[in-house]
Design a protein around this nucleic acid. Sequence first.
RNA 1: GGCCCCGUCGUCUAGCCAGGUCUAGGACACAGGCCUUUCACGCCUGCAACACGGGUUCGAAUCCCGUCGGGGUCACCA
Length: 525
Amino acid sequence: MVRTRFAPSPTGYLHIGGVRTALFCWLFARRHGGQFLLRIDDTDQQRNVEAALQPILHGFRWLGIDWDEGPEVGGPYQPYYQSQRLAAYQAAVEKLLAGGFAYRDYATSEEIQAERTDAERAKRPFLYSRKWMAETPADRARFEAQGRRAVVRLKMPRQGTLVIHDLVRGDVEFEWAREQDHVVQRADGSCLYHLASVVDDFDFRISHVIRAEEHLSNTPRQIFIAQSLDYPLPAYAHLPYVAEPGSKNKLSKRKLDKYLKNRDFAQVNEHGLAIAAALGLETTADTFNPVIVDFYEQVGYLPEALVNYLVLLGWSLDDKTEWMTRQQLIENFSLERVTKAPASFDPKKLWAFQDHYMQQLAIDERVTRMMPYLVRAGLVADPPPGEAFELLGRIVEAAGDRLKVFGDILAYADFFFNDAFAYDPKAFDEHLGKPDAAERLSRFKERLAVVEAWDVESLERAMHDFLAAESLKIGAIIHTVRVAVTGKAVGPGLYDCLEILGRDKSLTRMDRALDEIRKRGNVDG
RNA sequence: GGCCCCGUCGUCUAGCCAGGUCUAGGACACAGGCCUUUCACGCCUGCAACACGGGUUCGAAUCCCGUCGGGGUCACCA
């Protein structure tokens, strides 16, 4: 039975690299009809665990990564919180001690540090002398009489070689003599991560430990613990980490400033920020940026786009298949085809997947999912009246593939809902600020006022009649009209915009633009 | 610094284990063009990589050795 796990610590946010790891664990479990579980690594931070966990669970749910056991769903081995499993760790420590696989150590951290420094100076690898190791009650009494307190250390083997059969990297060898006598229990009785992790993986019957490669060098000590405790070893698979855009360094949320220097990353970030601003979201770089999954949900990306993109970051099916449904992903996923080298996160490629999946989505579905953005931005009443849905449907239809994320309805088509829209300054100067603009706009408006049927065909015909009568080229007027009625130089087809706005609004907006031109002209001159 | 991992277009990757079909394939990005009222989409074209050096071999991106480069990790963090 395949059982995999992902073990987030409750930090309050879901990191894109973490999700990739979790996704691989999840896919592997689903591929083999096994279970995927969530275990909470909260041995360190006791306070506000629930609050710090919510965004993480929410992110997984949004992405459709469901867990069979873990917080909020329970399971046969609950609790799945490390902070609630202290007794199990204590029992393991005692067993280690009893078996001679660990010892009480009375050294102070200064004494250990001194040994380490000596070793460094002598240019030999550090290995603890075990001078303050207490293996008998007499030793303990002696050290305690000196006022020392004990931690529990692993008594690591000092000879031989360990071979790890890693499912991604093949056989990896380690010399036991290079491994330190790591502390597994502090003087205050609390246990450390490696001990807890091994005990948990056994107690939860984890069959495959799939995790990021930074854990590869921790694996020998974990294997030592497991073997000392008579646990069967799980299979190990160490995934390459997700790297920064355009670099091989590990992606970290702390180096956001650096990523912002990457053009693509900055572009995606700014696009998201603009939508957040339209929504009135309070954003800080800490909680809202393209390294954090929540960013994509807020801005209105599709979870299937993110999932599809993330799977391809370190895994491929073949030489050309890129678009895969969740079902195809599950059917085809395999650890053998996971890459060994780190893969850098490319927001632009994610964007391309988003574009693709958005185009696949039916208009109705897009309307349903965009409407909440309009409501939150205050452009549509809550609850939205039926005509708002009808209007939005026509807009989405006309906008076609221009709306890349749900939030784009605000960044791109807000003017439909807002008569007091602002003119894009550059567009205004370019298309309304020119000498002939007002004159032409005013004449075109007169022509439009007498159009019989207000639809795309009639409007287009009216435009061509106008051009013929005035001996103008279309470029001389169409942009002017666009900016007058939408405020922007880019957007859906102009006739679509006019039709959707309707005759009254279109003409009113042209008047408003003419007023604005006059006003600005007076100020300027 | 020790140990471990990794190294194919700018980026994600296929190919490597079972050497020839690789004048290295696909995708994103980029550049140019077509379409076009703008933008976007779409289509076409282009640019662009086997880290380096030795070996083995008739033949090496693929096998071996070395070098260089990058990264991870060396906690009483997780």
